[in-house]
Design a binder for these strands. Structure first.
Length: 111
DNA sequence: CTACTGACCGCGA
DNA sequence: GTCGCGGCCAGTA
């Protein structure tokens, strides 16, 4: 297993439940800034049996990457909604559920 | 080696 | 809001 892939999987595993992140954010967190496409490849090639919150990874604009109507698309929507994420028309409002929001809140609540 | 593909992204028109 | 375009670069043929 490629070391970069392991770092990518680790970054994805670190996304808190009820929140989402973009491919680019995951790449950056994995120490691979600008390599969003590699994250896509890593997800596509996720080993069978590996537990991973893959459904919390979205395009930077909050849309689901998988084709509309596909099996994966429906499952991703279902799993996100199951943990309280608002999915409408295949899109999640990043402003409300993205990681940046978490960081901001953390900073604001620093008193 | 070249060519093409892609679970991407930011920018400008 | 939408479309291209160029940048990105690992896989695959």
């Amino acid at each position: 297993m490629d070391k970069r892939y392991r770092r990518i999987y680790a970054a994805i595993a670190a996304i808190p439940a009820g929140r989402v992140a973009s491919y680019g954010q995951i790449a950056a967190r994995a120490g691979l800034p600008g390599r969003a496409r590699l994250v896509g490849a890593a997800l596509r090639d996720t080993p069978d049996g590996m537990e991973l919150p893959w459904f919390r990874v979205l395009h930077s604009d909050g849309t689901i990457a998988l084709p509309r109507g596909s099996r994966g698309f429906r499952e991703q929507s279902r799993r996100l909604r199951a943990e309280g994420v608002d999915v409408r028309d295949g899109r999640v409002p990043m402003q409300a559920f993205g990681l940046a929001h978490d960081l901001d809140r953390a900073l604001w609540s620093l008193d």
